[in-house]
Amino acid sequence: MSQQLLRETDPDLLAAEYPGPAASSEEFPAAPENPRWSGAAGHILRLLQQTARQSLRQPGLFLAVLVLGTTLLWAAVPAAFTSWPPDTGIPADRLLPPSATHWFGTDSLGRDLFSRVVHGSATSLAATAVAVAVGLVAGSALGLLAGFVRGWVDDAIMRLMDVLLAIPSLLLSLALITVLGFGTVNIAIAVGVASVANFARIMRSESLRVGTAVYVEAARSAGVRWHTILLRHVLPNAAGPVLALSALEFGAAVLSISSLSFLGFGAPPPASEWGSLVAGGRDYLVAAWWLVTLPGAVIAAVVLSANRISHAFQTRTSR
């Protein structure tokens, strides 16, 4: 939840830190890139490709990609990573510390904790993806509308976003859960709605930045139609920072969703969502340290990785 602050400042600080295209030095032209892909999709593909290439040179980034890739695989094919069943335990094996057989130890019902983390990743990551998608789609649309139409539309939308920002996002999510009800899908939607304002703000500031760029001015004075400008100049050039924010929001959503499910608003028990796994270990803090520590560490690693990748996107796009 404290990430809200970082998202807040990112556009401004970034703009100040990297003066934009003018910064690229005349003496040292950038390596030739394939200009054949055009449009926002091509730009995103290129960005991902560059980041992948970059990650080979930076061990930290490489590790981040590896962590996130692994958890995605956990979600897709959990059986490939563990042979223990997530929901049935062996009562005799209850509360065993981590070992070669049970990597993360076992819980009070003798269930393998690693298996529960692996199988829980599908729920956690799907909820995260829903949350980011809700925020991204709604927020970008509002931000683009505000930044491109301007005038009173801009004022109205952004005042509303200011109000949403005035309420801490966790509290906003909780208010939404009160009316939507409990469950994984509902907390995902609630978290997504709480992040709309961030996406709207960055999309607006990006479309304003690009919209007032000299090259857009040049296009306008050359008689290019506004929708062509939007499609060919504004969207592709704004895509990078929005993608960076998406990665950051992914991390934030993992945190928020695990917090909400820790508080008990997620899927009801046997389900093994990451946050509820930590909550389940609360009663065994003294007897079984691993029940809280290890699932929590997985969450932290995923969030750290998402933030690291977001950072890589930011430095990429600001070049």
């Binding site: 803090l285 003294v286 809280v292 690291r308």
Partner: peptide, 21 residues
């Protein structure tokens, strides 16, 4: 970056485990 990435409830539980128990 590390402090930002760790879940608050986890910090609390770890502190509880270490300093209280």
């Amino acid at each position: 970056p590390l402090g930002i990435a760790v879940p608050t409830f986890w910090i609390g539980l770890l502190l509880l485990q270490l300093f209280s128990f």
